[in-house]
Protein backbone atom coordinates (compact mmCIF):
# COMPACT_ATOMS: atom_id res chain seq x y z
CA UNK A 1 0.00 0.00 0.00
CA UNK A 2 1.18 3.52 -0.72
CA UNK A 3 2.28 5.48 2.32
CA UNK A 4 1.40 8.72 0.62
CA UNK A 5 -0.72 9.29 -2.41
CA UNK A 6 -1.32 12.72 -3.92
CA UNK A 7 -3.45 13.27 -7.00
CA UNK A 8 -3.94 16.30 -9.19
CA UNK A 9 -2.45 18.77 -6.68
CA UNK A 10 -2.92 22.39 -7.67
CA UNK A 11 -1.61 25.29 -5.62
CA UNK A 12 -1.53 28.96 -6.45
CA UNK A 13 -0.34 32.06 -4.63
CA UNK A 14 -2.48 34.87 -5.98
CA UNK A 15 -2.00 34.78 -9.72
CA UNK A 16 1.03 32.55 -9.55
CA UNK A 17 0.28 28.91 -10.34
CA UNK A 18 3.00 27.20 -8.30
CA UNK A 19 1.88 23.56 -8.52
CA UNK A 20 0.03 22.54 -11.62
CA UNK A 21 -1.41 19.07 -11.26
CA UNK A 22 1.06 16.95 -9.31
CA UNK A 23 0.53 13.21 -8.95
CA UNK A 24 2.76 11.49 -6.48
CA UNK A 25 2.65 8.03 -4.97
CA UNK A 26 5.22 7.03 -2.38
CA UNK A 27 5.49 3.36 -1.52
CA UNK A 28 6.61 1.91 1.75
CA UNK A 29 10.40 1.89 2.09
CA UNK A 30 10.86 4.01 -1.01
CA UNK A 31 13.37 6.86 -1.07
CA UNK A 32 12.50 9.65 -3.48
CA UNK A 33 14.74 12.57 -4.32
CA UNK A 34 13.14 15.66 -5.80
CA UNK A 35 15.37 17.89 -7.88
CA UNK A 36 14.67 20.89 -10.03
CA UNK A 37 15.45 24.55 -10.56
CA UNK A 38 14.76 27.23 -7.97
CA UNK A 39 11.13 28.28 -7.88
CA UNK A 40 9.87 25.10 -9.49
CA UNK A 41 7.65 24.36 -6.47
CA UNK A 42 9.64 21.66 -4.66
CA UNK A 43 9.26 23.24 -1.23
CA UNK A 44 5.62 24.07 -1.88
CA UNK A 45 4.97 20.42 -2.68
CA UNK A 46 6.54 19.34 0.63
CA UNK A 47 4.65 22.05 2.48
CA UNK A 48 1.35 20.87 1.02
CA UNK A 49 2.20 17.27 1.90
CA UNK A 50 3.04 18.28 5.51
CA UNK A 51 -0.09 20.43 5.88
CA UNK A 52 1.87 23.68 6.23
CA UNK A 53 0.22 24.92 3.06
CA UNK A 54 -3.30 24.05 1.97
CA UNK A 55 -3.85 22.80 -1.53
CA UNK A 56 -6.45 24.38 -3.80
CA UNK A 57 -7.36 21.24 -5.73
CA UNK A 58 -6.45 17.61 -5.51
CA UNK A 59 -6.55 14.81 -3.00
CA UNK A 60 -4.12 13.40 -0.48
CA UNK A 61 -4.15 10.07 1.34
CA UNK A 62 -1.77 9.02 4.12
CA UNK A 63 -1.55 5.28 4.79
CA UNK A 64 -5.17 4.81 3.84
CA UNK A 65 -6.40 7.93 5.70
CA UNK A 66 -8.12 10.30 3.28
CA UNK A 67 -6.69 13.62 4.48
CA UNK A 68 -7.82 15.76 1.55
CA UNK A 69 -10.69 14.95 -0.76
CA UNK A 70 -12.26 16.82 -3.64
CA UNK A 71 -15.78 18.18 -3.61
CA UNK A 72 -18.03 18.31 -6.67
CA UNK A 73 -16.20 21.42 -7.96
CA UNK A 74 -12.93 19.52 -7.36
CA UNK A 75 -11.88 21.94 -4.63
CA UNK A 76 -9.82 20.41 -1.86
CA UNK A 77 -11.65 19.58 1.37
CA UNK A 78 -9.60 18.83 4.47
CA UNK A 79 -10.35 16.65 7.46
CA UNK A 80 -11.31 18.63 10.59
CA UNK A 81 -8.43 20.11 12.63
CA UNK A 82 -8.48 17.51 15.41
CA UNK A 83 -8.20 14.68 12.87
CA UNK A 84 -5.43 16.49 11.03
CA UNK A 85 -3.48 16.65 14.27
CA UNK A 86 -3.53 12.84 14.43
CA UNK A 87 -2.39 12.64 10.81
CA UNK A 88 0.65 14.75 11.76
CA UNK A 89 2.05 11.83 13.75
CA UNK A 90 2.26 9.89 10.47
CA UNK A 91 4.97 12.10 8.98
CA UNK A 92 8.01 14.11 9.97
CA UNK A 93 9.57 17.13 8.28
CA UNK A 94 13.19 18.20 8.47
CA UNK A 95 13.75 21.84 7.58
CA UNK A 96 16.67 23.48 5.88
CA UNK A 97 17.17 25.75 8.91
CA UNK A 98 16.55 23.04 11.54
CA UNK A 99 14.00 25.24 13.36
CA UNK A 100 14.80 23.79 16.75
CA UNK A 101 13.20 25.56 19.71
CA UNK A 102 16.05 27.61 21.20
CA UNK A 103 14.59 27.76 24.71
CA UNK A 104 14.31 23.96 24.99
CA UNK A 105 17.29 21.71 25.49
CA UNK A 106 17.96 18.89 23.06
CA UNK A 107 15.93 16.30 24.93
CA UNK A 108 12.93 18.59 25.43
CA UNK A 109 13.00 19.58 21.76
CA UNK A 110 12.43 15.93 20.93
CA UNK A 111 10.04 14.81 23.66
CA UNK A 112 7.77 17.81 24.18
CA UNK A 113 5.43 17.28 21.22
CA UNK A 114 4.85 13.55 21.74
CA UNK A 115 4.08 14.18 25.41
CA UNK A 116 1.97 17.33 25.00
CA UNK A 117 0.36 16.69 21.63
CA UNK A 118 0.18 12.94 21.19
CA UNK A 119 -0.20 12.44 24.98
CA UNK A 120 2.27 9.59 24.97
CA UNK A 121 3.78 8.12 28.10
CA UNK A 122 6.64 10.32 29.25
CA UNK A 123 9.09 7.64 30.37
CA UNK A 124 8.60 5.71 27.18
CA UNK A 125 9.15 8.82 25.04
CA UNK A 126 12.32 9.72 26.93
CA UNK A 127 13.65 6.22 26.44
CA UNK A 128 13.00 6.37 22.72
CA UNK A 129 14.46 9.86 22.47
CA UNK A 130 17.68 8.70 24.13
CA UNK A 131 17.88 5.77 21.73
CA UNK A 132 17.43 8.15 18.79
CA UNK A 133 20.07 10.52 20.16
CA UNK A 134 22.47 7.60 20.47
CA UNK A 135 21.73 6.65 16.89
CA UNK A 136 22.50 10.23 15.84
CA UNK A 137 25.76 10.14 17.79
CA UNK A 138 24.50 12.75 20.26
CA UNK A 139 24.11 10.70 23.43
CA UNK A 140 26.09 13.23 25.48
CA UNK A 141 24.15 16.26 24.20
CA UNK A 142 20.68 15.83 25.65
CA UNK A 143 21.12 18.70 28.11
CA UNK A 144 22.69 21.07 25.58
CA UNK A 145 20.78 23.98 24.11
CA UNK A 146 20.63 24.39 20.32
CA UNK A 147 22.96 27.41 20.31
CA UNK A 148 25.68 25.26 21.85
CA UNK A 149 25.62 22.82 18.92
CA UNK A 150 27.13 22.92 15.44
CA UNK A 151 24.77 23.15 12.48
CA UNK A 152 25.27 19.48 11.73
CA UNK A 153 24.46 18.52 15.31
CA UNK A 154 21.37 20.73 15.29
CA UNK A 155 20.18 19.10 12.10
CA UNK A 156 20.68 15.66 13.65
CA UNK A 157 18.58 16.73 16.63
CA UNK A 158 15.87 17.92 14.29
CA UNK A 159 15.95 14.57 12.49
CA UNK A 160 15.56 12.83 15.86
CA UNK A 161 12.65 15.16 16.63
CA UNK A 162 11.03 14.24 13.32
CA UNK A 163 11.48 10.53 14.04
CA UNK A 164 10.18 10.39 17.61
CA UNK A 165 6.62 9.42 16.70
CA UNK A 166 7.80 6.59 14.44
CA UNK A 167 6.42 8.33 11.36
CA UNK A 168 5.57 6.37 8.26
CA UNK A 169 7.35 8.89 6.08
CA UNK A 170 10.01 11.53 6.50
CA UNK A 171 10.32 14.66 4.37
CA UNK A 172 13.54 16.66 4.00
CA UNK A 173 13.66 20.11 2.42
CA UNK A 174 17.28 20.73 1.44
CA UNK A 175 18.58 19.35 4.74
CA UNK A 176 22.19 20.28 4.05
CA UNK A 177 21.82 23.66 2.31
CA UNK A 178 22.32 25.69 5.49
CA UNK A 179 25.41 23.73 6.51
CA UNK A 180 29.09 24.33 5.91
CA UNK A 181 30.33 21.93 3.23
CA UNK A 182 32.36 19.91 5.74
CA UNK A 183 29.21 19.25 7.78
CA UNK A 184 26.95 18.07 4.95
CA UNK A 185 28.58 14.64 5.00
CA UNK A 186 27.38 13.78 8.49
CA UNK A 187 23.76 14.55 7.60
CA UNK A 188 23.93 12.64 4.33
CA UNK A 189 25.29 9.69 6.28
CA UNK A 190 22.38 9.80 8.70
CA UNK A 191 19.94 9.82 5.78
CA UNK A 192 21.78 6.93 4.16
CA UNK A 193 21.52 4.94 7.38
CA UNK A 194 17.79 5.65 7.54
CA UNK A 195 17.46 4.46 3.96
CA UNK A 196 19.28 1.27 4.89
CA UNK A 197 16.65 0.74 7.60
CA UNK A 198 13.94 1.08 4.95
CA UNK A 199 12.66 4.42 6.17
CA UNK A 200 10.30 5.93 3.61
CA UNK A 201 11.69 9.32 2.63
CA UNK A 202 11.10 12.20 0.24
CA UNK A 203 14.14 14.43 -0.05
CA UNK A 204 14.38 17.75 -1.85
CA UNK A 205 18.05 18.25 -2.57
CA UNK A 206 20.62 19.88 -4.79
CA UNK A 207 23.18 17.15 -3.97
CA UNK A 208 22.84 15.24 -7.23
CA UNK A 209 25.52 12.69 -6.42
CA UNK A 210 23.86 11.94 -3.10
CA UNK A 211 20.43 11.71 -4.74
CA UNK A 212 21.82 9.26 -7.26
CA UNK A 213 23.27 7.07 -4.51
CA UNK A 214 20.47 7.05 -2.01
CA UNK A 215 17.25 7.41 -4.01
CA UNK A 216 15.17 4.67 -5.54
CA UNK A 217 13.45 7.23 -7.69
CA UNK A 218 14.34 10.71 -8.86
CA UNK A 219 11.66 13.27 -9.58
CA UNK A 220 12.59 16.25 -11.69
CA UNK A 221 10.27 19.23 -11.27
CA UNK A 222 10.03 22.40 -13.32
CA UNK A 223 7.44 25.14 -13.29
CA UNK A 224 5.06 23.34 -10.99
CA UNK A 225 4.90 20.00 -12.73
CA UNK A 226 6.79 16.74 -12.58
CA UNK A 227 8.68 16.76 -15.84
CA UNK A 228 10.50 13.49 -15.61
CA UNK A 229 10.88 10.70 -13.08
CA UNK A 230 12.41 7.29 -12.76
CA UNK A 231 15.37 5.39 -11.38
CA UNK A 232 18.46 7.56 -10.80
CA UNK A 233 20.43 6.00 -13.59
CA UNK A 234 17.76 6.93 -16.10
CA UNK A 235 16.92 10.43 -14.93
CA UNK A 236 20.42 11.55 -13.98
CA UNK A 237 22.62 9.61 -16.38
CA UNK A 238 20.30 9.45 -19.36
CA UNK A 239 17.66 12.17 -19.09
CA UNK A 240 15.23 12.03 -21.97
CA UNK A 241 14.14 15.64 -21.87
CA UNK A 242 16.17 18.67 -22.84
CA UNK A 243 14.85 20.52 -19.78
CA UNK A 244 16.34 17.91 -17.44
CA UNK A 245 19.59 17.78 -19.35
CA UNK A 246 20.00 21.54 -19.21
CA UNK A 247 19.38 21.56 -15.45
CA UNK A 248 21.88 18.80 -14.77
CA UNK A 249 24.55 20.30 -17.00
CA UNK A 250 24.01 23.64 -15.32
CA UNK A 251 24.40 22.05 -11.90
CA UNK A 252 27.50 20.11 -12.90
CA UNK A 253 29.19 23.29 -14.12
CA UNK A 254 28.73 25.13 -10.82
Amino acid sequence: MAVLSITNLHKRFGDLEVLNGINLEVNEGEVIAIIGPSGSGKSTLLRCATLLESMDRGTMTYAGVKVVEEDAQSNSVYLPQNKLRQVKALFGLVFQNFNLFPHYNVLKNIIDAPICVQKRNKDEVIKEARALLAKMGLEDKEDAYPFQLSGGQQQRVSIARALINNPKILFFDEPTSALDPELTGEILKVIRNLAAENMTMVIVTHEIEFARNVADRIIFMAEGVIVEQGPPDEVICNPTLARTKAFLTNLAER
Partner: peptide, 22 residues
Amino acid sequence: PIGQYEAATVLGYTKGQTFFKI
Protein backbone atom coordinates in the same frame (compact mmCIF):
# COMPACT_ATOMS: atom_id res chain seq x y z
CA PRO B 1 11.27 33.57 12.79
CA ILE B 2 8.37 32.02 10.88
CA GLY B 3 10.20 28.69 11.05
CA GLN B 4 9.35 28.41 14.75
CA TYR B 5 5.62 28.46 13.93
CA GLU B 6 6.13 26.01 11.08
CA ALA B 7 8.10 23.54 13.20
CA ALA B 8 5.43 23.69 15.90
CA THR B 9 2.62 23.27 13.38
CA VAL B 10 4.22 20.23 11.80
CA LEU B 11 4.68 18.68 15.24
CA GLY B 12 0.96 19.08 15.86
CA TYR B 13 0.94 21.80 18.51
CA THR B 14 -2.33 23.72 18.61
CA LYS B 15 -2.28 27.46 17.95
CA GLY B 16 -2.54 28.13 21.68
CA GLN B 17 0.24 25.71 22.57
CA THR B 18 2.43 27.14 19.84
CA PHE B 19 1.96 30.65 21.15
CA PHE B 20 2.27 30.03 24.87
CA LYS B 21 4.90 27.27 24.84
CA ILE B 22 7.06 28.14 21.86
